[in-house]
Simulated scan of single mutants.
Amino acid sequence: MELSSRYTAVVGRFRLVVDVLVAVGVAVSTATRDGGSANFAYVDYPGGQPPLWLAASLGLLVGAAVWQRRRRPELLLVAALAAFVALSAWIVLLLAQFTLAERTASWRKTAVATTAVLAVVIVPVWRMGGADASAPMGLAIGVVPALIGLYVGTRRELLAGLRERAERAEREQQQRVERARSDERAQIARDMHDVVTHRVSLIVLHATALEATKGDNAVTIGRQIGAIGREALTELRSLVGVLRADEAAPTAPQPGLADLEALTDASRRAGTPVTLETADATGAAAPALPALVEHAVYRVVQEALSNVRKHAAGARTRVRISSTPQLLHLTVTNEQGAAGPEHGLPSGGHGLLGIAERIRLLGGALEARPTPEGGFEISAQVPLDPNAVRTETVR
């Protein structure tokens, strides 16, 4: 940014110097009648030379118009026509024709200006040299500079349009990147909630069991606590790695249906009797599902089991997953169990919202409700048609 600002300042100073030199040069050239090489003046002055005050005044007027040529090209054209009529100064006409065409890039305005220039130039030249002289002179002074100016102006507008479209595309790309980052951070927040809640609840339950046994099986329970802690650290390290800009995102696959057995085993070891049923509508083993769907199902089951341990400790729980070619059904149902406050497991209130958002992003729906028997049930339906998955899930 600093280098760009310095470059802009240097270019601005260079442009200012060029404008000053051009304005002074054209003013002097006009006042001296372009060196007196030609005399196409409409007025015959005594001695063949215009008064000094007239030449100096028109020179200053033309110089000022040249200085303002980018903002007011029409003013420069009027001053140039006046200088040609009074002093036969044709160099400023070249600059005026080029500037008007280049700054406006308008064929209509350029045609009107060219007509006016040709009308003013051809008359004295025709009077002095006839058609053979007036045609080349009109072409050189009135037409060629206008065509060159139109080319330069049109090309500048084209490049400006391309630059503007490129900048707009870059801004839109940056906005998409920011949205993707925001979505990814929300995803990471949900994953961290799921990981921390599930693993820490297991650690607390095992620590409670260790306290209840008063030292019996301390080694076994301690190993289980250590294993759970290491698993939690591994998952958290993987998630935190995504937040670090100087590290590549982890390439390890996210947990899916194949990991549900290990998840339910961990809950059984923590004292929650869990049964897992995975089958399609015909009773066969569930087919392979999209990775996004499998990961969402895993997180829903993980959150549901964590809630059972927190709010219905020891309750018998059933996890059932069934599917058709178009839809996946998931239910996690637990019976009434002992309340869990004695385990010291707080509830942040975001778990159900997080898993509901996961399912919603896949085009599905999630419901959580108490059962008539006093238990609790979480059910979800996820469409398996890839076209049904919302575009927000695309990374």
Rank of each mutant, 00 (worst) to 15 (best):
V11F: 05
T220N: 11
R395E: 04
R244H: 10
A65G: 06
T110E: 01
V22K: 00
A186G: 13
N39M: 07
A111L: 08
S134Y: 04
R181G: 12
R108Q: 04
E2P: 11
P255K: 06
G283W: 05
G364Q: 07
S88F: 00
V66C: 08
V177S: 12
F40H: 02
D19N: 10
A258C: 13
H350L: 15
V389Y: 00
R395L: 11
R390V: 00
V152A: 09
G229Y: 04
A27G: 04
Q187A: 14
L150A: 01
V196A: 11
L81S: 02
Q254P: 05
Y42R: 05
T32W: 03
A262H: 13
R71T: 15
V123P: 00
P50K: 12
A111Q: 10
I355K: 02
Q175R: 15
P145C: 13
A207P: 02
E172C: 06
E235T: 05
L87C: 09
A245E: 12
G161L: 10
Q254K: 09
T234L: 08
L61F: 01
G12V: 03
G161C: 00
S57I: 05
R72F: 10
L95Q: 02
A262S: 14
V144D: 03
Q173W: 05
L345V: 14
I359D: 02
Q97E: 09
M128H: 06
T391A: 15
P370I: 04
E164K: 06
R179D: 07
T154P: 05
S88I: 02
P255A: 08
Q254V: 06
L21M: 13
E178K: 13
L162H: 10
S134P: 10
L276A: 13
R165N: 03
L139K: 03
R72G: 01
R369C: 01
R395S: 05
I91L: 13
I122W: 11
G226W: 08
A212G: 08
R369F: 07
A180L: 15
G63P: 03
P383V: 04
R69Y: 01
I221V: 13
A105W: 01
A64I: 03
A105M: 04
A245L: 12
L118I: 14
P287N: 14
R103Q: 01
R185Y: 04
I141L: 13
G229L: 10
V389D: 00
A169F: 05
L93K: 02
E102L: 08
E373M: 06
P290R: 01
V274G: 00
A101Q: 00
T331C: 11
I148Y: 02
